[in-house]
């Protein structure tokens, strides 16, 4: 069941780095856990911490960005490994929205499964947001999924695209597996006519 998302007003944290990969978001040593929760403490671990202490030169450690719920990023955000631990980690830390000029395919898709909204805006709009967030303390935006807009209380206003299906998925908090299982008879009849050319012995060896 996807957690519903309708709108959000929150402070923005800027991460001015291209190609942020999922290895950076959640390093591999934390992927051995078998849970879905509790990853927020490990977010950007190698960038955030040095010998267990917070690094003062990392942007998310600046007091003014603590408690932000919207992350502003650069192009190709979430590239690399398919690990869904990446959106789990960002969400657990507190980010529900990520705004960037482009996202890697698997990461973008994974966000929607976890009640998170990745928003693509143009390079110009992103530059403008970076300008605003770094010059105005406590800079907030409102993200409205129904109307597909990102606005602040003054000058910034942007429209974003999202497919109708993904929009519905988040607004309603759909159970995707349940909705596919409604088509079970179609899967049955597909299997009757579809050929598979390998056959495994059953069970483990």
């Amino acid at each position: 069941m996807v957690k519903p998302f309708t709108s959000l007003t929150g402070t923005v944290a800027p991460l001015d780095v291209d190609n942020v990969d999922t290895d950076a978001i959640i390093p591999k040593q934390f992927l051995k856990r078998t849970e879905r929760t509790g990853y927020g403490q490990f977010l950007f671990y190698d960038w955030r911490f040095e010998d267990g202490e917070e690094r003062q030169d990392f942007v998310l450690n600046e007091p003014r960005y603590k408690g932000s719920s919207i992350l502003l990023g650069r192009k190709n955000f979430g590239c690399g490994s398919s690990r869904e631990h990446a959106p789990w980690t960002l969400a657990d830390y507190g980010f529900q929205v990520i705004i960037a000029p482009s996202f890697a395919d698997i990461f973008y898709n994974n966000c929607f499964k976890n009640g998170m909204l990745p928003i693509v805006l143009s390079e110009d709009q992103i530059n403008q947001l970076f300008q605003l967030v770094t010059t105005k303390s406590g800079y907030e935006v409102t993200v409205d999924l129904e109307n597909q807009t990102v606005t602040d209380s003054h000058e910034f206003q942007a429209h974003f695209e999202v497919t109708p299906y993904r929009k519905r998925l988040l607004l309603k908090g759909l159970d995707e597996i349940g909705s596919t299982l409604e088509h079970q008879s179609k899967i049955d009849s597909f299997e009757d006519r579809h050929r598979i050319y390998y056959k495994l012995e059953h069970g483990s060896i």
Partner: peptide
């Protein structure tokens, strides 16, 4: 490649 939510979807539905 797919994420874990989709792994669950494929396990349950083969689609």
């Amino acid at each position: 490649g797919i994420g874990t939510s989709e792994v669950e979807h494929v396990l349950a539905t083969q689609t």
